[in-house]
């Protein structure tokens, strides 16, 4: 058992702490996200999944995201809410890493968690994230765009031009998707393992726990139960009520308009063909054109009549002189 603990891979350690810490902090952060969204002080651009992950997966993204946004010209959204969420995330993450870190130290390392573990783990992971994530972002973006153009040019070859569109899309996607996913997973594993190494380094200085397994489980289990449960329940309920009231007070009555930065592409559909309307319109046009035609014909007939009359008169007039010339 001791060997197993000592040989625990840094990736396992990193995942074992970051994954539960993320889920522990997420509900609290989401409550704030919701209020900020309702208040209209936070807008996300198209890649919502990414934006959410980047925002909520801190501490590793807390410093990395501004670096990526500024350095690599990647815009994820607008609004003071994003900055506010970052600020609120710091104490939440320190608390979450503290809770998870303490239980992890006891159960997996069988070591006494040192004081201020949450803060130590937070600043160290934030530092690792700030250096590693922009590199990851740059490499994955480059690899993805290169593999997309490579897959495209592959299918531009004469021998592959006959492949139907649906098949071509799926094969292209498989090619560039596999390459991009493999690179992303590899880099993520390296990143998590770096965090794991950092956690192991912190654990190496801690003193060993003396309790047996049952005793340790009881300890880490009780660590997550608040000392004053009534106070905790009242606090959580109170915060929930305040946030709910804030949410309903801020919720727009009508559909909120998207922010200038983050407008969705408008779906425009050509007005559909309505047979009855088109028939009525055509009939009206036919009646109108018939009336116009009749009017033109009438006018022409009148003009012709006039011309005829004039002609007769002219003829008469012209004929008159000879008549007048009659003796």
């Amino acid at each position: 058992m001791t060997d197993e603990r000592e040989s625990m891979s840094p990736t396992k350690i990193g995942l074992g702490v970051l994954w539960p810490a993320f889920w522990t902090a997420l509900p609290i952060k989401l409550a704030f996200v919701l209020v900020f969204l309702a208040m209209g002080i936070m807008q996300f651009e198209g890649r919502i999944g990414l934006a959410f992950l980047m925002l909520l997966a801190s501490p590793v993204t807390i410093f990395a995201l501004p670096t990526i946004s500024m350095g690599l010209e990647s815009h994820i959204g607008e609004g003071v809410g994003i900055a506010l969420l970052f600020l609120i995330s710091i104490p939440i993450d320190i608390w979450a890493l503290g809770v998870v870190g303490r239980t992890f130290f006891l159960e997996k390392f069988r070591k006494e968690p040192p004081d201020g573990l949450g803060l130590t783990l937070w600043w160290k992971s934030a530092l690792v994230g700030a250096i590693f994530l922009p590199i990851l972002w740059f490499i994955v973006s480059t690899v993805t765009s290169t593999s997309i153009s490579m897959a495209h040019s592959f299918f531009e070859l004469e021998m592959f031009k006959g492949i139907p569109v649906a098949e071509r899309i799926s094969i292209e996607l498989t090619i560039w998707g596999s390459i991009a996913t493999a690179v992303l997973l590899l880099l993520l594993l390296i990143g998590v393992s770096l965090v794991g190494r950092m956690i192991r380094g912190t654990a190496s200085g801690a003193s060993p726990a003396t309790d047996n397994y049952q005793g340790l489980i009881k300890r880490w289990d009780l660590m997550r139960v608040p000392a004053d449960q009534g106070l905790m329940l009242a606090g959580v309920t109170g915060a929930g009520v305040v946030l709910s009231l804030l949410f309903w007070a801020a919720l727009p009555v009508t559909t909120p308009h998207p922010h200038e930065c983050c407008k969705q592409p408008e779906v425009k559909v050509q007005p559909p063909y309505k047979p009855l309307d088109a028939l009525n319109k055509d009939e009206k046009m036919i009646v109108q054109l018939t009336a116009q035609l009749e009017a033109i014909e009438k006018r022409k007939a009148e003009e012709a009549e006039k011309n005829k009359g004039k002609g007769k008169a002219k003829d008469g007039h012209e004929a008159a002189p000879p008549a007048a010339k009659k003796p």
């Binding site: 509900p27 969204l37 996300f44 919502i48 969705q264």
Partner: peptide
């Protein structure tokens, strides 16, 4: 709570 908040966020977003 996470699912409720996620659905609400999506309703705002789109």
């Amino acid at each position: 709570a996470v699912v409720f908040a996620s659905i609400c966020a999506l309703a705002f977003w789109e």
